[in-house]
């Protein structure tokens, strides 16, 4: 009678996900979220659960270059898409900027925030204040005042546009 995860049934199967540039085969339940799969099946624990409800943004990853709350996406929906998690981000300017501006304290919201900022910088390298606010409202940071995060993002933006 016992059914462990891992058996192929109508409700679960093996899929191939493109994560941080690598093809990974993984057995999932159709009902598994991308977040659960990343953390529980692929050992990528950088994306954090904070609400599993789409509210906090701690689980944010990039899917085809756009920010995505990985708790709002099924793993099966991610098939055929390029998923990038915080683990796939190496020495990105926004990471340095977060360190320099003290843009985190406990660090729990940080992977999600950075992935959102990273997508923003890629999609809108010259984002204005309104766009920055619109995007960054999606994540909660309970520790910092957001001013630090704003500074971090803007320091990278300025870098992009070559201004002061």
């Amino acid at each position: 009678m016992r059914r462990r995860e891992g058996e192929e049934t109508v409700a679960s199967r093996t899929i191939t996900l493109n994560i941080n540039g690598e093809e990974r085969n993984v057995m999932v339940r159709n009902a598994d979220t991308l977040l659960y799969t990343l953390r529980g099946k692929l050992g990528l624990s950088g994306s954090k659960p904070g609400c599993l409800n789409g509210d906090c943004g701690a689980c944010t990853v990039n899917v085809d270059g756009w920010p995505m709350k990985s708790c709002l996406m099924l793993a099966v929906e991610a098939e055929g898409k390029k998923v990038m998690t915080i683990e796939g981000l190496r020495n990105a300017p926004i990471q340095q900027a977060f360190v320099k501006e003290f843009a985190f304290q406990c660090g729990y919201c940080t992977p999600g925030f950075i992935m959102n900022c990273h997508a923003l910088l890629e999609q809108h390298p010259n984002a204005d204040d309104k766009t920055i606010k619109e995007w960054l409202e999606s994540n909660i940071c309970r520790c910092t005042s957001y001013i630090e995060i704003e500074k971090a993002v803007k320091s990278v933006l300025r870098g992009h546009s070559g201004g002061s």
């Binding site: 950088g46 683990e87 990471q95 360190v99 660090g107």
Partner: peptide, 12 residues
């Protein structure tokens, strides 16, 4: 712990 926290390596 800054480097751990911006790379997703920090463990909770």
């Amino acid at each position: 712990e800054a480097a751990d926290k911006v790379t997703g390596r920090a463990k909770y």
